[in-house]
Design a binder for these strands. Structure first.
Lengths: 258, 258
DNA sequence: ATCTATTTGTACGTATGTATT
DNA sequence: AAATACATACGTACAAATAGA
């Protein structure tokens, strides 16, 4: 399950359970084990590695934390190889960026480069099911919000539009990165309260983009879709940047007290 | 340390140590603990959570596996908050894509969209140190390789050129994604033996691109740098695609036996 | 529905390693 | 060099969960 991720050597010194976890990983790969396959039970691992129960268990927890195995109790239970879920992968990567203080600009520099390409490659390849799903999604935020909570929800929904598109790409890498960015923005939106459009005009323009985008996708107009998305990203960027500035005017940024 | 990564609710049911790990995470965040800060010792955690040593230890291993803490023995030892390293993040994300069977096309669709933007934003902002580092890197593969092993090394080195560039971006997201793709390609190169250029002409053209790119970066010519990188990516794409086809002609793909 | 076998999960007590003072 | 403070490892006993008879 681990692709022998390049040089895992410079990683200083691993704890014993971590070593065991690595050994199990390579063993699993060497055995060509696949998604649902069962690993040896605790007892057998204890014997095979000549180590104590606790140590083995800690090793299994490491693999579990990485999303590589699932464990069940009972007869026929044990640990099973598990394909790392997208959800898990996003969470793990999120931990990395938690320390990085990403800005709106960072995220949008990426989005403006990627999303237009995404929709260009999608044009004409979407099922009617998905297309109407997109339209249904747009409908969610077509009426003005009544409450602040509804407003927040609408903002998150309008981001979901992009997650739906990302999900349709046959390119797992592109798909993941876009989906991840949508998550980042959702978190930012909720956490930093970046909703309540300061510029209604831009917000409505963004919605219009989405409507026109779906039309272009349905028509198989790749260049049109790309152009619309490019515009859309620019609009959203401006909108969010306005938000960020607005925030700074309202609150003194809460830095660490000590 | 965890940004309360959106809804972690749909994740079915967590094992007890995983629950504890989550609780500790949120506690750490609520306490505003930073990079080197010390967590409570084993004994104290055992008391605070009213759980056995093993359970606590497994929880710590989970956090360690995610790269969020480091543990040291000895007096003054214990567990400490640790900023997730880029290396670790790449490895964890690599596990996700291990199951996904990425193609050369998938990766290059991304690279062609991102790397030109990267160099455009870098033009004129690189120190002379970095610029000569880039030139030194190019020198590594400017002489024809003598052995097959040298050839492989040159291929990996030529990828490192991009990692150096990625490292210079102030955009942590862009930087990470490009670096990650470089890793993917390095792994692919080594694992699938995608070196030994089938097309010397293209290989040399790629090297020429890099030389001209450094010049443009030094001159602060953003548009020029972008254009060169775009060309470069197209060239590399073609080169690698040729490689992939060559591979398939030589080996029957080894699928799982049964 | 109950029992039984299987397999992981929890609990503790003890001993060993390791780094700081 | 010795004492100290901490994590690490081991082994056993028992508890909980689940599948199947």
């Amino acid at each position: 399950m681990p692709p022998a991720t390049t040089p895992s050597s410079p990683e200083v010194k691993l704890s014993r359970p971590a070593q065991v976890a690595e050994e199990i990983k390579t063993w699993v790969v060497s055995q060509r084990l696949r998604d649902g396959d069962r690993l040896p039970g605790e007892a057998e691992l204890i014997e095979r590695f000549g180590m104590a129960k606790g140590t083995i268990r800690e090793a299994m927890r490491i693999l579990e934390a990485q999303g590589l195995i699932r464990t069940r109790t009972g007869p026929g239970g044990g640990s099973f190889v598990h394909e790392v879920s997208r959800q898990r992968a996003k969470a793990l990567l999120g931990n990395y960026f938690y320390f990085k203080n990403l800005t709106i600009d960072d995220i949008y520099q990426m989005r403006v480069a990627l999303e237009p390409e995404l929709v260009a490659s999608l044009a004409g390849n979407l099922s009617e099911t998905v297309l109407s799903q997109l339209e249904a999604n747009i409908a969610e935020y077509s009426r003005p919000a009544r409450t602040l909570d509804e407003e927040r929800q609408q903002h998150v929904d309008s981001l979901r539009f992009h997650a739906i598109l990302a999900d349709q790409s046959g390119n797992a890498l592109l798909s993941f990165v876009i989906d991840f960015m949508v998550n980042l923005l959702s978190d930012l939106t909720v956490y930093r309260k970046l909703y309540s459009p300061p510029n209604i005009e831009l917000w409505e323009k963004g919605r219009d983009h989405q409507v026109r985008l779906v039309a272009a996708l349905r028509d198989g107009d790749a260049d049109g879709a790309r152009a619309i998305m490019r515009d859309h990203m620019q609009t959203a960027w401006t909108l969010m940047r306005g938000q960020e500035a607005e925030m700074l005017r309202q609150f003194i940024p809460e830095r660490r007290s000590g």
